[in-house]
Amino acid sequence: MILELKNVSFTYSRGTTYSVKALDNINLSIDEGQFIGVIGHTGSGKSTLIQHLNGLMQPTEGQVFYEGQDIWGSTDPAEQGKKKVSKKNRYDLRSLRTHVGLVFQYPENQLFETDVISDVSFGPKNQGLDETEIRRRAEEALRQTGVAEKFWKVSPFELSGGQKRRVAIAGVLAMNPKVLILDEPTAGLDPQGRDDILDQIKKLHDERGITILLVSHSMEDVANYADRIIVVNDGKIADDGTPKEVFSHYRELEKMGLAAPQTTYIVNELAERGMDVDTTATTITEAKESILKALLEKGQLRKGETFV
C-alpha cells in the first residue's frame, strides 16, 4: 500500500456561510503498480481528492498516509497523536510531491521557461540534483512522453497544444515520481493526440511500474486503460472496483450523471434481445470477441469468417 486515506473530510471556507463539504469521510487505499481510473461528474470532489494525495490540500478531518507515514503528522514517534507538530518534525511535503507527481488540468498553463528542456528541468532542479542528472532525467521524460528532439531547444510557447501538454507532463515525470496523478490529461485534445498521450501513460505504467491515477470524463478511456475504477459522487466514494464490476452498475452511474462505456450498452441491449453475449464486456475488443462467439454458437457465422 503506497497511499492511504483514513476518514478524510474536507470543507471549503469552513465556518462561513459559503462553507461546502467537498469530501465526506473518504477511506481509500492505493497499492503500488495499480492503474486507477477516477470518475465523477463536475464538482463531485475528484479534484479536491487528488490534491489531498500529494499534500497540496490538508484535510479538515482524517489522515493521509504515504508509505505508512502520516503526512500531516509528526515524523517523531514521541510527538505522534498531537495536534500541533513542531517545525523540525514536520513531514517533508516537498519531497512527497516529487514522489507523488500531480499533473493538473490543462497543465500547459504552467509552462514558463525559455526552452522546453529547461522547463522540464524545473522539477528535478527543485529536487536539488546535479546538472548531469537533471539533464538525464529531463531527456528521459521528454522521450517517454514522445516529444521529438528537434523541439527541445524551442520555446514551449511556440509548440502546438498537444506538444505543450506532453512537455508539461514530462515536467512532472522528470521528478521520477512513484505515483503519477493526471487530472484529465486529454481534455481539449484531438482523438489522435488523446490516444497518443494515453498510450504513453500506459507504457509508463507497464515499463516503469509507476502507479497511475487517471481522472477522466471519458468512460471509454477509463475502461480501456484502468484496472481499477473509483467513482466519486458528492464527496463520497460511490463505487470502487474493476471496470467490469463498476460498469455493471451502470444504472447507478447514470443516476450520478455518469454513464458506462457505449460497449456496455450495446452488449446489454444485445443480451436483452436474446443474444448470448458477455454483458461485462467493457472494451471494444472484449465485446467483439463475445459477439463473434455468440454468433458462431448460433451458427449465424461460419468458422474463420469475421467482421471487417
Partner: peptide
C-alpha cells in the same frame, strides 16, 4: 483563481 492554480501546479513540481 488562476494564480492559485498555477501556484499549486508549480508547488506540485517542487517550487518553493
Amino acid at each position: 483563481e488562476e494564480t492559485d492554480k498555477i501556484m499549486k501546479a508549480q508547488i506540485a513540481r517542487g517550487a518553493d
